[in-house]
């Protein structure tokens, strides 16, 4: 490699490295804001903003979904397997909303510690399989638990 080319190569490498470091620092500084949601544990420890709107993410607690028969109102527990928060919501739920499924709710904590949501989004996982395979895995898991 000729000396000029070598110099150019070093200059460009330095430029890319500099931009990478700057971006890394910026992302570290804004880490909080890049988190899309808070977990129930963070609500319990008071890390979630109080009196302000924020997003709460977790798993819908099995058997906790209570639907009001006369309206679209629904309440359910949301957990990260450490802490749980009760969520109340009125509106249409996404197709993937079900017990044991991850969801993200947007709203505010009221005085009683209930999270009043005005938007509920489903967070699906990275697993894809045919229903028969899912059934088989379910059965195997049930057998293992016995």
């Amino acid at each position: 490699m000729t000396p000029t080319r070598k110099k150019r190569l070093y200059l460009i490498a330095a430029m890319v490295a500099g931009v990478a470091v700057a971006t890394g620092l910026a992302l570290k500084a804004f880490n909080e804001n890049l988190m899309f949601f808070f977990s129930p544990s963070e609500v319990a420890t008071g890390e979630a903003p109080e009196g302000e709107r924020f997003r709460l993410g977790g798993m819908v607690v099995d058997g906790s979904v209570q639907r009001d028969p006369d309206s679209l109102a629904v309440t359910f527990g949301l957990t990260d397997y450490d802490e749980a928060v009760t969520v109340s919501y009125t509106g249409i739920l996404p197709d993937l909303f079900r017990e044991g499924q991850g969801i993200v709710a947007h709203g505010k904590l009221n005085g009683d510690g209930v999270f009043v949501a005005d938007e509920v989004l489903a967070k699906h996982d990275e697993n894809y399989m045919p229903p028969e395979v899912a059934d088989m895995m379910e059965q195997r898991k049930a057998k293992g638990a016995q």
Binding site: F36, F37, V104, D125, E126, N127, Y128
Partner: peptide
Amino acid sequence: LHQGPTVTKFDAPSIH
């Protein structure tokens, strides 16, 4: 909100 990687994660891909 976007799910994690399916195919490019280190263990076996979690897709049938």
